[in-house]
Every structure is written in structure tokens, then in C-alpha cells.
Amino acid sequence: MKLLLSLAISCALFSAGFPLSCYQCTPDASGNCTNTVTSCMSSQPTCVSTTATVYTGTSNISKISTKFCSVPQQCVSGSISLLGVRTTLNTNCCSTDLCNSQTLPEWPQNSLNGRQCYACNTTSCLAVLNCSGNEDRCITVMATVLGTRVMVKGCVSPEICSGAMSQLGLNASAEINCCQGNLCNDARRIIQNILLLLVPLVSIVLIH
């Protein structure tokens, strides 16, 4: 029994001393990517391989494949559609040494699913966009770009809403709101929801 306990402790110490090794690959200006081996930090227990693809209509205009160390929360696949542009993300995660050797294909182009969301064009954010695949939510993003406040609206997969915005180029400082229901990302509906939340709060204040 003591021997087994000693072996278990030794194995644990041995594992703790050797961090996870993953392939790392960042594409250059030509889109080429060469695998190198990197040791992950203890806070990054996952090897990731991901491919982001940008479409205009059915035309593939950009495809970027990367590999890196990360966290399980980044293991997300799905898509986000804006007016005239659709970005997809295909991600695979694993947790053994050098398990992310595979370069993933693009997330499949899916047919329209019958849902609709508002999208922004150059004049307003009231254009109606037809959603594709598993995009069952509408999204509104408020971000600051070069000092200018910008609003973006469209359709989005539920997984993208929950945690992969950074992989799609939406930084952490952006204000992101997702909702369910056709055309739910109308500013008027957002204001109505805020008012509905304020009614019970005002009632509580008045009572006390």
C-alpha cells in the first residue's frame, strides 16, 4: 500500500514538473503556417487547432488556420453573419502533448434556417438579415474603433455568444449582447426590456 501511494505521489510530481506541449502556428502575410513546439503555461491546459474563414456570399475571401495553447472556454465552433459578410470558426481542442497537429477545414457553409436578425449598413441598423446554419441568436456589438463608436448587428451561433468573440476579432472591451427570437436585436426592444426590469425595482424603492 505504501509503495502504491509513493508511486502515485511520484507520478503526480512528475506530471506537475512537465507542462503540456502543443503545436504553435501563426500564419505569415502569405497565409503560410509552420508548426513549432511550445510549452504551455499551467493556466493553459488545452491544445487548440482552429480555422477561421470569411465569406462574402458563397465566395471564400479569407481563411486563417492557427494552433496554440489555450483554455477549454476557447473550444468553440460556429459562425457570425453580418450584412454581406459571414465569418465561421472551426475549433478542435485536446489535452495531450502535441495532439493539435491537424489543420482543420473550414466550418461548412450551411443553408438558411428561417430566422432573421437586424443588421447594419452604411445608413442604419434596420436591414433584415437571413440567418444560416445554427445561428439561432441575434447579436449587437458596440465597439470603439480608432476612437469612433461603432455598432454591428447580425446573426450568431449560441457557442460564439458564450465565449469565442476574441477569436473572431471582437476584443474584450466590446459591449456584446445576444438575444433569441426573430429580429430581437432591435434597439427599441432592448429599451423595452430595460424598462421592464426597472418597473419592479422602482416598486421596491417606493415601498421602502
Results as ranks from 00 to 15, higher is better:
I207V: 14
M1L: 06
A174H: 09
L89G: 12
C93Y: 04
S101M: 09
P105S: 12
Q167T: 04
G57Q: 05
A52L: 13
R86P: 07
E175R: 02
A143F: 06
K153W: 14
I176K: 09
D28G: 15
N130W: 02
D97Y: 01
I64T: 14
S59W: 03
R149E: 10
S79V: 01
C138L: 07
P27R: 08
S30K: 12
V141F: 01
S162F: 07
P45T: 07
L146T: 02
I80T: 13
S77D: 11
T58S: 15
S59H: 03
L7D: 00
N60T: 15
I204T: 10
C155G: 11
S10C: 09
T58K: 10
C69P: 07
C25R: 08
V152P: 02
Q74T: 03
A143Q: 15
C178I: 00
L196S: 07
G147A: 08
L104G: 08
I207P: 01
T103I: 10
N92A: 11
N90V: 11
A29K: 00
C75K: 06
T26W: 06
S62H: 08
S79I: 09
C125F: 00
E135L: 04
L198G: 05
P158F: 12
T96G: 04
C69G: 12
A8G: 06
C161G: 11
L206V: 06
I207A: 11
Y55S: 10
G147R: 15
M1E: 13
V85M: 15
S49C: 03
T38E: 12
G133K: 03
Q192D: 14
S42P: 00
A29L: 06
S79W: 06
I9M: 14
T96L: 11
S162K: 14
C25Y: 12
C94T: 09
G57C: 07
C161K: 13
L206F: 07
I190T: 14
Q167A: 13
A12R: 03
M1P: 00
T87F: 00
Q73S: 13
V150W: 02
V150T: 15
T103Y: 10
I204K: 10
K2E: 10
E175P: 05
T51N: 13
I194M: 15
S79Q: 10
L13Y: 06
D186S: 15
K153G: 01
